[in-house]
């Protein structure tokens, strides 16, 4: 669990509830010890700068290029994307997911919302998806599989072993996405 900044703690709690062994990652030696990585929500600009400050940018790029299993939520999805608009020019996009995303695309916090989201891969009942100053995915590459959409925009997608969602599965207490990610990648 990348834990430089943001909602790492709730992801760790979700992983603990499904019996997955999870540790926080702050440094390169800790990254080397894990076989898959969740990139949490938070501020993508801050997380990007702290990756640099803690010497994690190079090692993370290498691991992602090597096909490490990864799930990016909200800010984490932006880090996995190939292109981010309305962000900072210096923020990292590792390109593990061939998507273009617009940062904070719904507007200020008063536009943040919850939605019941049908996700076929998770079964018949919809997932309560919490969108907090979320990005919108504006383009998906040919290799990207879209697993859920909201108002036509992809909100959950995967490309090989890289998964990304624009909402926060860690906020709603619904553990199905964490479980699916852990089971498929085991």
């Amino acid at each position: 669990m990348l834990a430089l900044q943001g909602a790492a703690e709730l992801h760790l709690a979700a992983l603990a509830s499904i019996g997955a062994a999870a540790v926080p990652v702050h440094r390169p030696d800790e990254l080397a010890d894990v076989d898959r990585l969740i990139l949490p929500g938070g501020e993508s600009t801050t997380i990007s700068m702290m990756l640099d400050a803690n010497g994690l940018t190079g090692p993370l790029a290498e691991r992602l290029a090597g096909g490490m299993s990864t799930l990016g939520t909200c800010a984490g999805l932006l880090l996995l994307a190939t292109e981010v608009s309305d962000g900072r020019d210096d923020q990292h996009c590792f390109g593990a997911l061939d998507i273009s995303a617009r940062r904070n695309a719904y507007g200020p916090q008063t536009e943040s919302f919850e939605a019941d989201l049908p996700i076929a891969a998770l079964g018949p009942s919809p997932m309560t998806a919490v969108f907090i100053r979320s990005p919108i995915v504006e383009r998906v590459g040919p290799e990207v599989e879209v697993l859920a959409r909201l108002d036509g925009h992809p909100v959950l997608c995967r490309q090989g072993r890289a998964w990304g969602c624009t909402f926060h599965p860690e906020l709603s207490g619904d553990l199905r996405l964490h479980r699916l990610f852990c089971e498929e990648m085991a």
């Binding site: 703690e9 916090q109 943040s112 919302f113 907090i132 709603s172």
Partner: peptide, 15 residues
């Protein structure tokens, strides 16, 4: 409340 508290969760470990 979950949406309101959610943004605070995103600011954790930040300044």
């Amino acid at each position: 409340m979950r949406v309101k508290r959610g943004l605070a969760e995103m600011l954790k470990r930040g300044v």
